Simulated scan of single mutants.
Amino acid sequence: MNQLNVASVREFLLDFVDERLSVRGYSAAEVNDEFDLLVSGVIDSLAFLEMTVALQERFEVEFDFEEIDPVQLSIVGPLCHYVSSLKNA
């Protein structure tokens, strides 16, 4: 089994939201682990669903929404760590 690192997840995630970041005046370089994509307005509820589906498909994982606090799924650091931990479990 290939180990997935957090940096790979972060790269994919920031690529996925790159255009939305630009529209809101952010660059990927400014996004830290505490950056909340939903609260900042980078994504809305529909984009949140699209993002979670894209992450699950790309990394072949399935989110357990009972296992994680849904609020953490819109924050870059916790989200990337969660996806990585699912793949590496």
Rank of each mutant, 00 (worst) to 15 (best):
M1N: 13
M1K: 11
Q3C: 05
Q3L: 13
L4N: 00
N5E: 15
N5R: 14
V6Y: 09
V6F: 08
V6K: 14
R10C: 06
E11Y: 14
F12I: 03
F12N: 03
F12M: 03
L13Q: 11
L14F: 00
D15P: 00
D15H: 03
F16D: 12
V17G: 00
V17A: 01
V17R: 04
D18H: 10
E19K: 10
E19C: 06
E19S: 10
R20C: 01
L21T: 07
S22I: 02
S22N: 08
S22T: 03
V23G: 01
V23Y: 04
R24N: 04
R24A: 03
G25A: 02
G25I: 00
S27Y: 09
A29R: 15
A29I: 15
V31C: 10
V31K: 04
D33R: 08
D33A: 11
E34V: 10
E34K: 11
D36C: 14
L38R: 10
V39D: 06
V39L: 11
S40A: 11
G41M: 00
V42R: 02
D44T: 02
D44R: 03
S45Q: 01
S45M: 01
S45H: 03
S45N: 04
L46F: 13
L46E: 05
L46N: 04
A47W: 03
A47Q: 09
F48M: 14
F48L: 15
L49G: 15
L49M: 15
E50V: 09
M51I: 11
T52L: 12
V53T: 14
V53W: 08
A54W: 05
A54P: 05
A54Y: 07
L55T: 00
E57M: 06
R58I: 08
R58W: 06
R58C: 12
F59Q: 05
E60W: 08
V61K: 02
E62N: 04
E62D: 04
F63D: 10
D64N: 14
D64C: 06
F65K: 05
F65T: 09
E66K: 07
I68A: 15
P70V: 09
V71P: 01
L73Y: 02
L73R: 06
L73H: 05
S74W: 05
I75G: 06
V76P: 11
V76R: 09
G77Y: 10
G77D: 08
G77P: 08
P78S: 09
P78R: 08
L79A: 05
L79R: 06
C80I: 09
V83G: 02
S84W: 13
S84P: 09
S84I: 09
S85K: 01
S85N: 04
S85H: 01
L86K: 12
L86S: 07
K87E: 00
N88H: 02
N88M: 02
